[in-house]
Design a protein around this nucleic acid. Structure first.
Length: 414
RNA sequence: GGAGAGAUUGCUGAGCGGCCAAAGGCAGCAGACUGUAAAUCUGCCGGACUUCGUCCUUCGGAGGUUCGAAUCCUCCUCUCUCCA
């Protein structure tokens, strides 16, 4: 976590600019300005609410975009509510595709919440963070309360939502309870009397319903802020665990480093904007240097990787990961730490393919064979291209195996 | 309640009763190249094996017709459309 900036002393406009960095929507700036001003004069911090899915407690870089913005509010002295949607989780956010979700038990929810807590304080200030569950008030609503809530909105307004609209037009199924999701989420804002709610751009509709509903309940409408969805490693789909294109913040530094290096040169700038605390101007300068040829894109990307790792691990870990990356990929040497697998010794020679699978370096024999045939396997620095090749499996024999560019393993027979 | 359309290998999306382990795209993997696990190009891409081939399991589920079915028939499950 970087040192706290003297932000509370900044002027209102400076604060607004700071908070607006990297955002897509901000409804609206004047409301936020008013709230900030009131907070400054009354000394009462703003309540900033962000909802999270109780089923996927592994935070990845995509989530950190909004979490980082939460931190910005904290640095200005405000209070953030990390809202775990245990109740809405039963509905399943219709944003996206999955319409059915398994109901989680109380224990599972608590476990997931614990996992969240462990991760979020890498970025957030524990003192200014409140973790809440929306079953607290949504569960208390009961069916009668739910119907009263539903009475405050119309189908036409719900169908304004692009997501529903598209599914409707494409003849995709929409279950009735899905229509309640935006209302339930909006009710969270009522219950918490949120000053600000944030989310990804895909949440815009839900967030705006919050504004409407708060007015219905006679509350001052919340300010709505949306942040871009960060594309995953493929550069196309949004980062998500199910697509496997994510960088988890709990991952080892080496792994994060490699993954950051694998994003395209173009995408790197978006990561700079959304996953570092550099100002927009600083990033533009850097980009200008790369375009002008004064800064090598690879160097810029390495710096990005180090910055990201420094947030989740430490600057020292970042340096180590950088060194390791250069060693393995730039200098094509073996990594310093290689996982070792012990296999049972045998008198008969063992096919290389079998050994690769046994060492967990390939999922199936076919996959191992394919990789080997394509020239991707070497043992003790010598490329193997005969799929029938075998190795001595007598006790005491050991082999250093490389499969593809980044799978390494050591096998010892015993 | 009635009439129709559809469910295909991680996703998407083709598929004439045999030439279908099933086109194309995406993702993934490997190689070359390089500036990196960028970009680009080439190849691979269900599983097992004694792999220029053989066998096994897959096309919503269960049966059936046929020498042979993802392709035809019956029933079931789920989705969508239109009518009431």
């Amino acid at each position: 976590m970087p040192p706290e900036l003297p932000l509370t002393a900044a002027s209102l406009d400076e604060q607004l600019d700071y908070l607006a960095k990297g955002t897509v929507d901000l409804f609206d700036r004047d409301d936020l300005r008013k709230k900030l001003a009131r907070s400054a004069s009354s000394g009462k911090p703003l309540t900033v609410k962000v909802g999270f899915d109780p089923t996927a407690p592994d935070i990845h870089l995509g989530h950190t975009v909004v979490i980082r913005k939460m931190r910005h509010f904290q640095l200005l002295g405000h209070r953030v509510i990390f809202l775990i949607g245990d109740f809405t989780g039963m509905i399943g956010d219709p944003t996206g595709k999955k319409t059915t979700r398994p109901a989680l038990s109380r224990e599972e929810i608590e476990t997931n919440a614990e996992t969240y807590r462990k991760q979020i304080y890498k970025l957030l200030d524990r003192e200014k963070t409140e973790v809440r569950f929306n079953a607290e008030w949504l569960g208390a609503l009961g069916s009668e309360g739910m119907i009263r809530l539903a009475a405050k909105y119309t189908l036409a307004r719900i169908l304004e939502r692009d997501d529903f609209r598209k599914r409707f037009d494409a003849h995709q199924p929409i279950a009735l309870h899905e229509l309640l999701y935006p209302l339930a989420q909006a009710y969270d804002s009522v219950a918490l009397q949120a000053d600000v709610e944030m989310g990804g751009t895909d949440q815009l509709f839900n967030l705006l319903v919050g504004r409407d509903l708060m007015r219905e309940y006679g509350l001052e409408p919340q300010v709505v802020i949306t942040l871009p969805l960060l594309e995953g490693l493929d550069g196309v789909e949004k980062m998500s665990k199910s697509l496997g294109n994510y960088i988890g913040i709990d991952e080892p530094a080496e792994s994060i480093f490699g993954k950051v290096m694998s994003i395209s040169d173009d995408l790197m700038w978006k990561y700079y904007l959304l996953s570092t605390d550099l100002t927009a101007a600083e990033i533009e300068t850097k980009r200008g240097q790369v375009v002008a040829g004064a800064l090598h894109p690879m160097e810029a990307k390495r710096e990005l990787a180090r910055r990201i790792i420094a947030d989740f691990h430490s600057a020292g870990d970042a340096e180590k990961a950088d060194d390791e990356f250069r060693r393995v990929f730039s200098d094509r040497q073996m990594p310093t730490e290689i996982e070792e697998t012990i296999l049972d010794a045998a008198a008969e020679p063992l096919p290389v393919i079998k050994m690769i699978v046994a060492a967990g370096l390939a999922p199936t024999n076919n996959e191992a064979r394919r990789t080997l045939t394509q020239g991707g396997v070497s043992i003790d620095d010598a490329r193997i291209d005969d799929p029938k090749a075998t190795v001595e499996a007598t006790a005491g024999r050991a082999y250093l195996i490389k499969v593809g560019k980044r799978r390494f393993g050591r096998v010892v027979f015993r």
